[in-house]
Simulated assay, not measured.
Amino acid sequence: MKSLFKKRTEPVVYNKFYLLAQKRWAEKMSGFTDGLSKRELILALLLFMVLTSGILISNLYRAFYKETEVLTASKIKTINLKN
């Protein structure tokens, strides 16, 4: 655990595609939020949090409380690969 908190001696080098995607995402999000007031930004953040929390709770519910579907041989369709 201690090794996780050690100071890094070498800098982290990111892939150029990751940095490009990060830059484009930041530009797009900045464009969406340029004309919004502080109140609108807070409301957008709250809406995002409610939606993502709902998705998480739904996934957890389905994972723990729904019956799992058993895959039987009758449900498997065979594919004929004839040319």
Rank of each mutant, 00 (worst) to 15 (best):
K75S: 02
P11I: 03
T68I: 05
F17P: 00
K6G: 00
G35M: 04
V13F: 07
K23A: 13
R8T: 08
E40A: 00
S3V: 15
V13P: 02
N59M: 11
N59I: 06
P11W: 08
A63E: 05
K7E: 13
A63R: 08
Y18D: 11
F32K: 13
L20Y: 15
V70P: 06
L36Y: 09
V13E: 05
T52P: 00
S58A: 01
T72R: 06
S58P: 04
L60D: 02
N59A: 06
A26S: 11
F5K: 14
Y18A: 04
D34Y: 09
I42V: 09
I57P: 00
K82G: 08
L45I: 03
N83H: 10
S3G: 02
L41Y: 08
T68D: 13
F64Q: 03
N15I: 05
A73D: 12
L47D: 09
L51Q: 05
I55S: 04
V50Y: 00
S30T: 11
S53Q: 04
K7I: 15
G35E: 11
K7H: 15
Y61F: 07
Y18C: 00
Y61G: 01
I76L: 01
Q22R: 12
A44V: 10
F32I: 14
T33A: 13
D34W: 10
R24G: 03
R62I: 04
Y18P: 05
I79A: 06
D34G: 10
K28R: 15
M29A: 07
S58D: 00
R62F: 10
R62V: 08
L19N: 07
R8L: 12
N59P: 00
L56T: 01
A21H: 05
R62Q: 04
L45R: 03
S3Q: 15
L19G: 05
F32Q: 14
T78E: 06
A26W: 02
L46D: 04
A63W: 05
Y65T: 02
K38W: 06
N80W: 04
N80F: 01
Q22L: 09
D34V: 13
K77S: 07
K7W: 15
R8W: 08
L4C: 13
L41H: 07
I55G: 02
F48P: 00
S74D: 07
W25M: 12
R39P: 05
M29N: 13
L81P: 12
E67R: 13
S30Q: 15
Y61E: 06
K2Y: 14
Y65F: 12
K7L: 15
F48A: 07
